[in-house]
């Protein structure tokens, strides 16, 4: 399969749209959140002061929830296939993790084990993002809508969980961005999610061999 020509549609329009919406909301949320949690006045003033930054943060939070939620409900099949893929860990995935996908310079590896549509690292990232988003959403809304009625101890709990989850998510997303857009081994993936959705068949056959074997050819 080393000489396959053509293109693979890796991420459909809906998926890419959702990814963009979620990403933009995340960036706005991160900037505003950092701005008013650490009192970095410069960041808050981009959004028109602390109070407005908070308002932007809350409504960006709504987008952050509604975007993926609509996607899941309207594209339940895509979501289900995604969940199936990231929840299936085979021997190859563990082997991939053992060599860290060949990304680390001090682990020499000739050929990484064949992977599904998402490699083992992406599967773990998927889970962490899902759990992180759940936590940040569940703690975020009480801080906004029930801030007056919940007890102080619960509010403090929400702020702490929200804060630490945000820190972890920002680091994860930064790592995700580095591997998917900058790292020479995998930056070819960038266009498949951020632009037209297509990736070279040859690259897919190499990086996602198991998945590529299941693909159908368009008539």
């Amino acid at each position: 399969m080393s000489n396959v020509n053509g293109k693979v549609l890796k991420h459909g329009t809906q998926t890419r749209t959702m990814h963009w919406i979620h990403l933009l909301a995340f960036i706005i949320l991160g900037l505003t959140g950092i701005g008013f949690y650490w009192d970095i006045g410069g960041i808050a003033s981009i959004f028109g002061g602390e109070a407005n930054a908070s308002l932007v943060h809350r409504w960006a939070g709504v987008v952050f929830v509604v975007g993926p939620l609509l996607y899941v409900l309207l594209n339940f099949d895509r979501f289900s296939r995604f969940m199936d893929s990231i929840s299936h860990f085979s021997k190859d995935d563990f082997a991939w993790l053992k060599v860290m996908g060949g990304y680390l310079p001090f682990i020499k590896v000739d050929e990484v084990p064949p992977q599904d549509k998402y490699n083992a690292g992406q599967k773990i990232l998927g889970w962490l993002i899902i759990i992180g988003c759940l936590l940040i959403i569940l703690t975020g809304f009480p801080m906004w809508l029930w801030r007056h009625s919940v007890p102080a101890v619960f509010l403090a709990f929400c702020y702490n969980v929200h804060f630490w989850t945000a820190i972890i998510l920002i680091l994860l997303v930064a790592g995700h961005f580095f591997l998917a857009a900058i790292h020479p081994k995998s930056r070819v993936e960038f266009s498949s999610m951020m632009l037209d959705g297509y990736i070279d068949a040859q690259i897919s056959a190499h990086h996602n061999a198991k998945w590529f074997a299941e693909l159908k050819e368009s008539p």
């Binding site: 396959v4 020509n5 053509g6 293109k7 693979v8 549609l9 899941v72 339940f76 099949d77 979501f79 289900s80 296939r81 995604f82 969940m83 199936d84 929840s87 549509k117 899902i130 759940l134 068949a201 897919s204 590529f212 299941e214 693909l215 159908k216 050819e217 368009s218």
Partner: peptide, 26 residues
Amino acid sequence: MKLFHESEGITRRQFFKGAGMLTVAA
């Protein structure tokens, strides 16, 4: 140029995984 794509629709297992995740979230 050849174009490849995933097959539409979902299998039983995929459905349960998707629905299962929503349930877990709930």
